[in-house]
Amino acid sequence: MSILRVDGLSLAFGGLQALRDVSLDVAPGSITAVIGPNGAGKTSLFNAVSGFYRPQAGRVVLEGQDISRVTPPRRAALGLGRTFQNIALFRGMTVMDNVKLGAHVRTRTGPLAAMWYLGPARREEVRIRAEVEQEVFDFLEIDHIRRSPVAGLPYGLQKRVELARALAMRPKVLMLDEPVAGMNREEKEDMARFILDARDQWGLTVLMVEHDMGMVMDICDQVHVLNFGEKIAGGTPAEVQAHPEVIAAYLGSDDMATLRERLRGERGAA
């Protein structure tokens, strides 16, 4: 039984076929990665799962419920949390408000109650604040920047705040779009630890797009490979690494050299 199932998804922009009949299953509690060369359609797949793109064919099923025709905000409320490839923090808000915004889907206060800020509205805000402080800020070690505007933060911290916001949604499936891109080794290790801990602590399922093969091979249970919008392989990291089509897909692309080097490096280190 999978918690998230993508079934025969096809997506085209004009003449450009971004995804062609892509299917994959995400097992509950797993960490699943989608990899592939640049332009393979990984982010398109994420956006289709989030509901921002409308695929021409195929279904997205969350916990047995077909959500193909559900709007993006409803999908978020049903348990799809995510981060974005090029950090999508709200620049006009502090770290605190950005993270609290993640809790939007599980709060109720309407405009009138909000304006008077009495009773239920007040209690809800204080509750969210306490949750964010105790569960998310402590966990991700960002309590010292809670009042900072996000705009001036270093890149690694911004990524962490984005993860915090996604966690505040208390999603069932946490979708991470390149969580460690552009990070140094230390930051990458921190992030990997956060992802593993988040999965263990909240019983989340993680689905991520990532270029860093070391990270993928280290922490993922399942790996799916996209190339030119088509899924060419899927399985455990070891199976995927040995798959001839995967090697062919990376061959000739810039990623090949890095891939081989990384794989060798990681194996050597382990």
Binding site: S50, G51, F52, T71, P72, P73, R75, A76, A77, G81, R82, F84, A88, F90, R91, G92, M93, D97, L101, G102, H104, V105, R165, M169
Partner: peptide, 15 residues
């Protein structure tokens, strides 16, 4: 504010 800063991301985050 989220809608002002990034409307599409806001929508994907549940707004």
């Amino acid at each position: 504010i989220a809608i002002r800063d990034r409307d599409i991301s806001a929508s994907v985050l549940g707004i």
